[in-house]
Design a binder for these strands. Sequence first.
DNA 1: TTATAGATTGCCT
DNA 2: GGCAATCTATAAT
Length: 225
Amino acid sequence: MGSAKALRDAAIDIAKLRPLPASFYDRDPRVVGPALLGKIIVRRRGRYWMAGRIVENEAYLGSGDPAAHAAAGRTARNFVLFGPPGRAYVYFIYGNHYCLNISCLPEGQAGCILVRALQPLAGLERMARNRGVDLRELHSPARLRLLASGPGRLCEAFEITRAEDNGRDLTSPASGLWIGDDRHHPRNIGASPRIGITKAGDLPLRYFLRDNPFVSGPKAPRGTR
DNA sequence: TTATAGATTGCCT
DNA sequence: GGCAATCTATAAT
């Protein structure tokens, strides 16, 4: 199968991956967002594992960003945002979906990156099972986009939940959910307003890889700049 | 191919 | 009680 070959190819790359240190995230989200494009999220579940390249994300600032969950201050829901950098902030939305964020800035300062879309690299069969996608249709580009193109979709594909993953340290492979640097530095980064928010909708804080087919949205990336 | 509504839970006011 | 950093099915073009 082609997907089996893709898994083997990706396995070689994953072995070389080095986890991004906490210092990587200890910066302004507007810096971390573009820097995270091209980086690889790895999920290990026992002897199974999955990996995907970050192709789209959004920056949320602390105070001064009315669209951020941290805008109203620290609560039981968002306390991870005020903790150390490089931790998973997972929240539940619209009664159906989880979304994965990564805390930025030093402890005491809120700010994060919302991961919006991944390009599946390894473990495609398990992602397909998690997402209810027919394994026999994974050769179709349109079907592949259903795996992890969208913040809710990628959490379902990677088995990310608030109960299990909120607060998880993403800088250590031992945690089973971490982000690696393959030293691939993409060019051609686009920016646009953030998706699905009602406040501060004009700020261009959404970052994506231009021309990458796994960026979320009906077809082409909405907005450019 | 695009537009619209419905689902469904938990957080915050 | 209202609403949300979404996704899917269904309808209409």
